[in-house]
Design a protein around this nucleic acid. Structure first.
Lengths: 117, 117
DNA sequence: CAGAATCCGGTTTGATACTG
DNA sequence: CAGTATCAAACCGGATTCTG
């Protein structure tokens, strides 16, 4: 079936949604879409993320094959994060969601306001 | 700018991502895309969701103008949930994400396995 | 049937400070 | 620079029970 499987808790699609649906992964993909970035660059680009959480996010994404982590033996140390082809392929779907968000955010906010919320 | 704003914690895009990035909203949109559904139908269609959480999700989505809630004064009571045009417009972006997930789930799982995860 | 209310544990998140 | 350690808080979410 086309998407009924997404409703099965054991369906792998759920795994992906849980992963990329997290607060920071989407921002990381967007931040890396134009090339490699260092840890601090990512932290600064993504507002409001603490080092710990950013590390968790990056590790998880590396674990899932979405990006690679490269350590340069330099002083001062340098670590670069780069999207894999798999990670890059995620950019298009993410874009379609963020574009929807940008186009419709006022409609959502209007609905909230109308609800006295 | 095209998406730099998404990195501002106060950016409305973040609000949307936080909302539709939750565990169940996506499934609700998919469940409702072919027409109205009753509460129990939704609960049964979406595996693993408790009434409380489903109610929370539906209320939040109603609040945001993504769906409407219609109560019929019958016995037994009947409540139908229907996507608004706004909610329906969310279907396409969601599809593009779930399609990515379905296409690439094995790649992700392979990466996890390769990582001894 | 469609929820509301309550209770409660566990994961997630975060601020802060510290280290190689 | 690139994280880690520690601790506390928030929140999510589940089970259960109850009601109109």
């Amino acid at each position: 079936m086309e998407n009924g499987d997404a409703f099965d808790p054991n369906c792998p699609t759920r795994l992906i949604l849980d992963r990329i649906g997290d607060k920071w992964s989407v921002l990381v993909v967007l931040s890396l879409r134009e090339g490699p970035r260092r840890f601090t660059e990512l932290r600064d680009a993504i507002g409001g993320v603490t080092p710990k959480v950013l590390t968790q996010t990056l590790r998880a994404m590396e674990h899932d094959g979405l990006l690679t982590r490269e350590v340069f033996a330099e002083v001062p140390p340098r670590v670069e994060y780069t999207l894999t082809p798999l990670g890059q392929s995620l950019h298009a779907p993410i874009r379609s969601v963020t574009e929807w968000a940008e186009r419709n955010v006022h409609a959502v906010l209007a609905a909230r306001a109308a609800h006295a919320g």
